[in-house]
Nucleic acid binder design. Sequence first.
DNA 1: AGTAAACAGTTTACTGGTAAAATAATCAAG
DNA 2: CTTGATTATTTTACCAGTAAACTGTTTACT
Lengths: 165, 165
Amino acid sequence: MDTPTLLAQIERDWRAARPDVNPDPMLTVIAVQRASQALQTALETFFARHDLTPSAFDVLATLRRSSPPEGLTLGELAQCMAITPPAMTKRMDGLERRGWVVRCTDPRDRRTVRAALTPEGRVAVDSLLADHIAHEEALLRTLTPPERATLRALLGRLPAPTGPT
Amino acid sequence: MDTPTLLAQIERDWRAARPDVNPDPMLTVIAVQRASQALQTALETFFARHDLTPSAFDVLATLRRSSPPEGLTLGELAQCMAITPPAMTKRMDGLERRGWVVRCTDPRDRRTVRAALTPEGRVAVDSLLADHIAHEEALLRTLTPPERATLRALLGRLPAPTGPT
DNA sequence: AGTAAACAGTTTACTGGTAAAATAATCAAG
DNA sequence: CTTGATTATTTTACCAGTAAACTGTTTACT
């Protein structure tokens, strides 16, 4: 069901059942969550065609764009994509098995583990990147560039994810 | 980390690493996802104080506001909150164990199961509703009412979740 | 009527996340 | 040095979701 239609129905239902409450904040929260879920599903479908998940691509893309040639520590990666360290360990396990990423121990601090793209991993990101962006572009095609900027600005003023740190 | 700051950094990183790609769609998608995640986390924290989860409250609230006194079928509920039928079965199991909801078999079609709030369930929603709305209101306090309307309108033009139906 | 197809809900097996405890390495204070 | 606190990652146990298979019920076609 269409999100505006759903929101209108929820609003009507609340006004009938509890006219004393103001459903406005609920509607806004639901709108954000539904948009996010729809985007997530679309990304899953897209990446599944390339035998990947959005999470896995997220790791590869983060490593691809982050400048330091020595790689990022697992903690930095986890914080950057707002997941807990154990989840990062699992993501790395999968990516390492597929040969796209390697764990390197830092000789200066042997507690930390650095992740780096392998050449194959780099090729994998680079060959998907243009298609991925085109796909996201298609998902957003109903919004003009200034509308997207407005959307980002409004969303940016909502609370940010609180890192598990 | 602040979402606008994060987006700015991601944009800078991509422009340095792959100046040929336009990171704009990625930034917009990330903004939606981060806002949704932050809201979800805040709701989890809020409901945990009342020994509930957002999912459980979602079921209770949906039943509370939906007019038909005979209740909704599990399929309708699942579709309404965009989860699969097995997930709905599990949610119901927990809520039924806690006495907030009952399953009723429809005598006209014995395949369907209708869910209905118990009096205790109704009290639970009603006593939490005002606090919940106030909490969401606080989460959105940085946006004025017209800004919220703009946000909802823009999000409403993005793809809607594709039901598993 | 009788049988095949479709439907609603549940069971099972699996996935990807979290929280808490365990492991291993570094740092700071005597 | 050596001890105790802190940090980074992993291991373990668990939870909530999905997809696919299963059960029982209804519907539609001869």
